[in-house]
């Protein structure tokens, strides 16, 4: 599972570089997210409070195991927020059908200043 974390002043941008978050990669996704979002200053530092924004623009497919992993990451980050951006059509469909689109803040696109970082 290929993920890239890019710290910015307001949020931690995590770009998913793998094309699929599926049953074969769900556990890896969860483990990598846990590593990448571990704040360098420990849980009391400022970095522990800024939201994590997951760039999903390269993920063409997510199954129910992948969805479960994203939900699990949201829970393990709490109270820190996990937000999602740029869902592709099939991924968006899975979130919408399962009503998980009502649980996450989902941005249609990455904020403009973040589109070219990293």
């Amino acid at each position: 599972m290929d993920l890239e974390a890019i710290p910015t002043p307001d949020l931690l941008l995590v770009r998913v570089l793998s094309e699929r978050i599926d049953a074969a990669g769900a556990i890896q996704f969860k483990d990598r997210m846990r590593e990448l979002s571990a704040p360098p200053g420990g849980v009391d530092g400022n970095a522990a409070r800024i939201p994590v924004l997951l760039d999903m623009s390269r993920v063409g497919f997510l199954d129910s195991s992948g969805l479960g992993a994203v939900v699990a990451v949201m829970k393990l980050l709490a109270p820190r927020r996990l937000e999602l951006a740029a869902l592709t059509p099939t991924v968006e469909k899975v979130f919408r059908l399962t009503r998980m689109d009502s649980v996450f803040t989902i941005h249609p696109d990455l904020p403009e200043p973040l589109r070219h970082v990293g």
């Binding site: 199954d63 129910s64 969805l67 479960g68 992993a69 939900v71 699990a72 949201m74 829970k75 899975v94 059908l97 399962t98 009503r99 649980v103």
Partner: peptide, 19 residues
């Protein structure tokens, strides 16, 4: 069936047969 959920008790599975 999709389990009833709230923000404090989110399901991590059980989506497959629903889909």
């Amino acid at each position: 069936q999709l389990a009833a959920f709230d923000d404090c008790d989110l399901p991590e599975g059980g989506f497959g047969w629903f889909l």
